[in-house]
Amino acid sequence: MMRVPPSALLGLLVTAVFFGGAILAPWISPYSYDATVGGVWEPATAAHWLGTDGIGRDVLSRMIWGGQITIWVATAATLLSFVTGSVLGFTAAVAGGWVDQALSRFVDLVMSVPSLIFALVVLSVMPVTLPVLILVMGLLDATRVFRLARAVAVDITVMDYVEAARLRGEGWGWIIFREILPNALSPLVAEMGLRFIFMVLFISTLSFLGLGVQPPLADWGGIVKENKDGIVYGIPAALYPAVAIATLAISVNLVADWILNRTTSLKGGRGA
């Protein structure tokens, strides 16, 4: 029986609530995300739990729908980043030689520019649509996953069982997916949590700058952008996304910490 520490359990629970909310958004949000249902910037009431926004839309509904977009985009970008990054990273480690050199130098090239700046440069010529955003974010982030995956895989490729598989004459596909992947999974999964949070922050930042999700759709960053003018009048609508993002970030971090600790203790390390 696996013992889950209370902090990780709390993290899992809250994360599950967020994902559940994202999936069930059409059923649990009290109003439609783009329907004008009240006055301008009404305070919180029984009908509108978080009040209404600058053009009379229900903030709670927009938060739930916004959560759906934020989480969906972040998940898709994380998956893209992981599949690309880890396959390329493993390939570099297994193949070695010029393949490794070429891939590693290419990643150095992309990482020489901060990723937000690079994303802005690319988005200045690309149309800003959801698939483009996911592609840009995922591929830029894949460079970080590549470095981790390559580092982990380089340690594994020198193991005896990999050598044995090579001597048996197994192909690269077998070595990568049957020998390396299962052994590299735990550090990668722990990293996945952190990359997911990074993606949430990334898409929120882009949307806040007006270069992410376009109105009338809005993710959490977009909700801040729409409601920022209210802040000067003491209307807190723009601050709710902060609460959502911080809660999600902290709970995913708790889970990732636990996974990381579990793997180090499995390997006889000093994990708690």
Binding site: T205, V224, V232, G234, L239, P241, A242, I245, A246
Partner: peptide
């Protein structure tokens, strides 16, 4: 510090505005 690194910069900005400039 865990709380401050979990919130994106722009939101931190508006929280600070809300607290120190508006209130």
């Amino acid at each position: 510090t865990l709380a401050t690194v979990s919130v994106p910069e722009f939101l931190l900005g508006y929280i600070v505005i809300f607290a120190l400039a508006v209130k």
